[in-house]
Simulated scan of single mutants.
Amino acid sequence: MSLKHQITEDMKAAMRAKESDRLSTIRMLLAAMKQKEVDERVELDDVAVVGIVDKLIKQRKDSFSQFSQAGRTDLADKEAAEIRVLEAYLPQRLSAQEIAAEVASIVAETGAAGPGDMGKVMAVAKTRLAGKAEMGQVSAAIKQALSNQ
């Protein structure tokens, strides 16, 4: 079953169970997916759906930190609940050690020799690690690997 189909089925289940918070989050995700399909005139595959989920989680984390700093725990709790719902659609994330190992192999493959080659390594890493790791962690691992050379 494709991830897109799974999300649709989860929306139906949330409707039946009358889980309004979960339902609104899934509907927001489906709306973002539909918007991307309409804008780019493409049918989304699982990789593209994971990219959208990643983007939405990043937005929710930013909002969560803003609301927490402002003392709005009610809104921060809502954002945290949305993050939990969205994270269910992500594949298993790589550990820091696994990310470092992947980055090391990418650096070796590309022949990167220093911080100036960050863009070249990051381009390969984005395609290979999309959905498997948070790109902020990947970027930090690349900087670490390239500064050690």
Rank of each mutant, 00 (worst) to 15 (best):
S147W: 01
A108L: 03
I142S: 05
A123L: 14
R60V: 02
A17M: 04
A100M: 00
H5M: 06
K55H: 12
V107R: 02
D117W: 03
A76C: 10
M33C: 07
L44G: 12
A13M: 09
V121Y: 08
G71T: 12
V85N: 04
A96C: 04
L146M: 01
T73N: 13
G116Y: 02
I26N: 01
K34N: 08
M1H: 07
S105D: 15
A141L: 10
A133C: 13
I142R: 02
L90T: 11
V103A: 11
D39L: 15
Q69N: 12
K36T: 08
V42L: 12
R27G: 09
G51W: 03
L75F: 14
Q97D: 15
A70W: 05
V107F: 03
G119T: 03
V47Y: 01
S20I: 15
A100R: 15
D62S: 10
V47Q: 14
P91L: 08
S105K: 15
A112F: 09
E109S: 07
K55P: 02
G51T: 08
V138C: 04
E43K: 15
S68M: 14
G51I: 07
G51F: 03
V42F: 02
K12G: 07
V103K: 08
M11P: 02
A104H: 11
A125H: 01
L146Q: 06
V103F: 14
Q66E: 15
K126S: 13
I99F: 14
E109V: 01
Q6S: 14
T25S: 10
M33P: 01
A96N: 07
G111T: 04
A32T: 01
L86R: 01
K61M: 09
K18E: 12
K18L: 08
V138Q: 09
A108T: 04
I7S: 13
S2V: 00
G116M: 03
D46L: 11
A113I: 05
P91S: 10
L129E: 00
T25I: 08
D62L: 12
S63K: 11
A125Q: 12
L30N: 03
A140N: 14
I52N: 04
E87R: 13
V38G: 06
T110P: 04
L146D: 00
K58L: 11
Q137C: 00
L94H: 02
